[in-house]
Amino acid sequence: ARCQGVVCAMKEAFGFIERGDVVKEIFFHYSEFKGDLETLQPGDDVEFTIKDRNGKEVATDVRLLPQGTVI
């Protein structure tokens, strides 16, 4: 199932997405972002798939959504 959220933090090689369905942040590695990383910034709406890696939830297949998609 695809989830939606808003990019809330960006570091050197990874970032965090504030999920739209639950009050929780989820980790994503930049290699999982399908698009131009140069244009990705905090506040952007994205959709993603949640996978379990070593007992921790991570966002994979992260894709940009049109602004205003995530309420």
Rank of each mutant, 00 (worst) to 15 (best):
residue 28 F to L: 02
residue 64 L to G: 09
residue 32 E to A: 03
residue 11 K to C: 03
residue 8 C to H: 15
residue 57 E to V: 12
residue 65 L to Y: 04
residue 54 N to E: 08
residue 68 G to S: 09
residue 50 I to S: 04
residue 18 E to F: 06
residue 38 E to N: 12
residue 23 V to A: 15
residue 14 F to H: 14
residue 23 V to L: 11
residue 63 R to P: 00
residue 45 D to V: 10
residue 2 R to V: 12
residue 24 K to T: 14
residue 10 M to V: 04
residue 43 G to T: 02
residue 9 A to I: 05
residue 22 V to H: 13
residue 47 E to P: 00
residue 45 D to A: 12
residue 26 I to G: 01
residue 24 K to V: 04
residue 36 D to Y: 04
residue 37 L to K: 08
residue 63 R to C: 13
residue 69 T to K: 10
residue 39 T to V: 12
residue 70 V to I: 10
residue 8 C to S: 15
residue 35 G to I: 00
residue 41 Q to C: 13
residue 28 F to H: 00
residue 9 A to N: 06
residue 52 D to L: 12
residue 34 K to L: 09
residue 25 E to D: 11
residue 3 C to N: 15
residue 60 T to D: 03
residue 53 R to M: 09
residue 14 F to C: 07
residue 55 G to D: 09
residue 21 D to R: 07
residue 33 F to R: 02
residue 68 G to M: 05
residue 60 T to Y: 04
residue 9 A to M: 04
residue 10 M to Q: 05
residue 24 K to L: 04
residue 37 L to C: 07
residue 57 E to P: 13
residue 3 C to E: 15
residue 19 R to M: 10
residue 43 G to N: 05
residue 13 A to D: 08
residue 32 E to V: 00
residue 55 G to L: 04
residue 19 R to P: 10
residue 49 T to Y: 11
residue 30 Y to W: 01
residue 27 F to K: 10
residue 62 V to I: 07
residue 56 K to C: 13
residue 19 R to S: 08
residue 20 G to R: 14
residue 41 Q to E: 15
residue 28 F to Y: 01
residue 7 V to E: 00
residue 5 G to S: 01
residue 23 V to M: 09
residue 47 E to F: 05
residue 52 D to T: 13
residue 45 D to M: 10
residue 65 L to G: 08
residue 46 V to E: 01
residue 42 P to C: 12
residue 2 R to E: 04
residue 39 T to D: 11
residue 42 P to V: 15
residue 49 T to G: 06
residue 6 V to H: 12
residue 36 D to N: 09
residue 29 H to D: 12
residue 8 C to A: 15
residue 19 R to A: 08
residue 14 F to Y: 14
residue 27 F to M: 10
residue 39 T to K: 15
residue 8 C to P: 03
residue 9 A to W: 07
residue 20 G to C: 07
residue 17 I to Y: 03
residue 69 T to F: 05
residue 10 M to T: 15
residue 14 F to A: 05
residue 18 E to G: 04
residue 31 S to F: 05
residue 29 H to N: 10
residue 31 S to V: 05
residue 58 V to E: 09
residue 56 K to L: 09
residue 57 E to T: 10
residue 27 F to A: 12
residue 22 V to K: 10
residue 18 E to V: 03
residue 39 T to S: 12
residue 22 V to S: 14
residue 7 V to M: 01
residue 21 D to W: 03
residue 44 D to E: 07
residue 64 L to F: 07
residue 51 K to G: 12
residue 44 D to I: 08
residue 14 F to S: 07
residue 25 E to W: 07
residue 33 F to K: 00
residue 58 V to I: 10
residue 6 V to C: 07
residue 26 I to T: 06
residue 63 R to F: 07
residue 40 L to A: 02
residue 29 H to L: 06
residue 27 F to E: 13
residue 54 N to D: 14
residue 31 S to M: 06
residue 10 M to R: 15
residue 71 I to L: 14
residue 20 G to K: 11
residue 9 A to G: 05
residue 1 A to M: 07
residue 62 V to T: 01
residue 55 G to T: 03
residue 69 T to D: 14
residue 50 I to W: 03
residue 65 L to E: 03
residue 50 I to A: 05
residue 68 G to R: 07
residue 5 G to R: 01
residue 68 G to E: 15
residue 54 N to A: 12
residue 42 P to K: 08
residue 22 V to R: 11
residue 48 F to N: 00
residue 45 D to G: 14
residue 33 F to Q: 00
residue 19 R to N: 07
residue 50 I to L: 11
residue 17 I to H: 01
residue 51 K to V: 10
residue 21 D to M: 09
residue 16 F to R: 07
residue 2 R to D: 08
residue 56 K to H: 10
residue 19 R to W: 08
residue 2 R to M: 04
